[in-house]
Design a protein around this nucleic acid. Sequence first.
RNA 1: UGCCCUGUAGUGUAAUUGGCAACACGUCUGUCUCUGGAUCAGAAGACUCUAGGUUCGAUUCCUAGCGGGGCAACCA
Length: 562
Amino acid sequence: MENTENARTLNFIEEIVEEDLRNGKNDGRIQTRFPPEPNGYIHIGHAKAICLDFGIARNYNGKCNLRFDDTNPVTEDVEYVDAIKEDIQWLGFQWAGEARYASDYFDQLFEWALLLVRKGKAYVDECSAEEISAHRGVPTQAGKESAYRNRPVEENLDLFMRMKNGEFPDGSKVLRAKIDMTSPNMHMRDPVLYRIKHAHHHRTGDKWCVYPMYDWAHGQSDYIEGITHSLCTLEFEVHRPLYDWCLDQIADGDYRPRQIEFARLNLNYTIMSKRKMLQLVNEGYVSSWDDPRMPTICGLRRRGYTPESILNFVETVGIAKRENIIEFTLLEHLVREDLNKKALRVMVVSNPVKVVLENYPEGQVEMMEAENNPEDESVGTRKIPFSRELFIERDDFLEDPPKKFFRLSPGNEVRLKNGYIIKCTGVDKDEQTGEIRQINCTYDPTTRSGLEGANRKVKATIHWVSANHALDVEVRLYERLFMVPDPDDVEEGKDWKSNLNPDSLKVIVAKAEPGLANAKPGEKYQFQRTGYFCVDTDSKPGKIIFNRTVTLKDDWAKILKQ
RNA sequence: UGCCCUGUAGUGUAAUUGGCAACACGUCUGUCUCUGGAUCAGAAGACUCUAGGUUCGAUUCCUAGCGGGGCAACCA
């Protein structure tokens, strides 16, 4: 019974893998790879691919390589290489051996291209990009062959070598595969294999001035690395015939890597395009790639998301081939679930109003004991100072409360978490504005937490901090970055940025229990009754900064809406 | 007027390969509680895109439609 509980059904890729294993394909070897292009930071969508690629390897006793797909030097940079490595490791994965680079294979790739030319399967085209594009035709109509398509092998060889030697300017020539200009698959209409770029490459420097295209580099790199299952997203589906064609040109034995496509991850209320993320950073809509509002891995990390929550998310979302848009609430649920087990509970008042306990001795301070996490006894307890003057949340008091309001109101009792039961006797208001300046209460000395008298039933428990002991902390309250589920859904003339939420960040100063003065960057807390918070990397001793990861579920807020 | 992929509760993923459509999130009730958190119990919600066909029986197989997505970078 318990076994079936754990036996998750296989996704379609695992089915293929197990089938291959049963058939003894590739001698039972499982080899995958995660192939990011180092032209941006990786995001939660990449996390899906990472979990798949590394997960398959892990579960089937295989290996997963990390391979940077760095065939386009003009958009790529080492800055991204380091960040990508860090993010993968933070998620809990480790690639086999050293990180690899498509650029490691440039010599081999070039040799194979030469082989293609000699076989009469590739030619140097001197048409302009525009002409090539025009000749390619449209999906519903066949293309036209280039005038250079049938030149002699020797001439192609000579020209290609001279391309490599830097004799021609950028864009003047390309090497194209000779396949079929009438193919219904556009990618088979003599795809470009090499282009001239006199560009500095972040690894190979100025060695090359011809660079392979994705289609020539990717499958061949897979082949070199002995990849068995080359997993990628749906948009590469139409490339697969070309992927296979390229491999067939250079492979001799039975072994071939197999490309399998799955649907990428989409999340509502967010964008998943590196281009758009870059724009948000460059135009100052967010502070950086690791801004806690970004769906990047580093952004989520800074926001307070745990690797476990992201892994669970990817697992829950599943792998299939149909387009999907996942609800953000699922991600939030999973981070709450994880943080509920791990986060230490503390009391922080974000919108304070003063409470004075009229019958509590002036100058007296009691140290109250508080559980650090009711879900985990092993993390123990701590002491919090209690005194005559306290801060509570302004929202926890209502002078004229509706029926279902259980918190503090005149004549009503409420429990102070880890403290006493108090009763409101009245309020002091600003004569001009009517704003409540101070709430007056009496406390019942017999109801201290842990004492017999504390067992009395009280409708609500609220959190508090001692006014004289409170620590001022900066709290960054984050909301979703976009106001609408689909940020790309805009009316004529507007662009996706018009859907940005102007209130996605609100910074406040809150009153925290004094022990938080020692909070360290990265630590995660639950502000009781409020939400989960993570100490920001900008935080320093003397200036503690918290990022709100996610709010707690709030039934009262729901009642208010009704 | 082409090719490829894909249609199962609001969302996502299943259905042991042809046997009463399940799970998670979300929604709604209620229970419990020194967090209106967590927990626990329960409910609603799906003509499985449509129409034919094969079959005792179809989400599953076949045919034809329809809807959604992708493909026309010297990007990946």
